[in-house]
Amino acid sequence: MSFRTAQIRLVSSHPEVYEPCDDSFALVDALLADRNHLLEHHPTLCMEVGCGSGYIITSLALMLGQDSPGVQYFATDINPDAVRVTSETLEAHGVHAELINTDIASGLEKRLAGLVDVMVVNPPYVPTPEDEVGREGIASAWAGGENGRCVIDKILPIADNLLSEKGWLYMVTLTANNPSEICIQMREKGYASRIVVQRSTEEESLHVIKFWRDFDTQADAKETTKTNKPVPARLMESLVSQFPLSSFWRSSGSNSN
Rank of each mutant, 00 (worst) to 15 (best):
Met1Val: 07
Ser2Tyr: 02
Phe3Tyr: 15
Thr5Met: 09
Val11Phe: 08
Ser13Asp: 11
Pro15Ile: 10
Val17Lys: 05
Asp22His: 06
Ser24Leu: 05
Ala26Asn: 12
Leu27Phe: 04
Val28Tyr: 05
Asp29Asn: 11
Leu31Asn: 01
Arg35Met: 01
Gly54Ala: 05
Gly54Phe: 08
Tyr55Met: 08
Tyr55Pro: 00
Ile56Lys: 00
Ser68Thr: 06
Gly70Leu: 07
Gln72Ala: 13
Tyr73Gln: 01
Tyr73Met: 02
Thr76Asn: 00
Asp77Leu: 11
Pro80Gly: 14
Asp81Trp: 08
Val83Ala: 01
Arg84Met: 09
Ser87Val: 00
Val95Gly: 02
Glu98His: 04
Leu99Ala: 07
Thr102Ile: 01
Ala105Asp: 08
Arg111Glu: 15
Ala113Met: 14
Ala113Thr: 13
Val116Glu: 02
Pro123Phe: 15
Pro123Leu: 13
Glu130Gln: 10
Asp131Gly: 04
Asp131Thr: 03
Glu136Ile: 14
Gly137His: 11
Ile138Asp: 10
Ala141Asp: 10
Gly145Val: 11
Gly148Asn: 07
Trp168Ala: 07
Leu169Gly: 11
Met171Glu: 04
Glu181His: 12
Cys183Ile: 03
Arg187Asn: 11
Arg194Cys: 15
Ile195Ala: 07
Val196Gln: 03
Val197Trp: 04
Glu204Trp: 00
Glu204Pro: 00
Glu223Asp: 05
Glu223Asn: 04
Asn228Asp: 12
Arg234Pro: 05
Ser238His: 12
Leu245Thr: 02
Ser246Trp: 14
Trp249Met: 00
Gly253Pro: 03
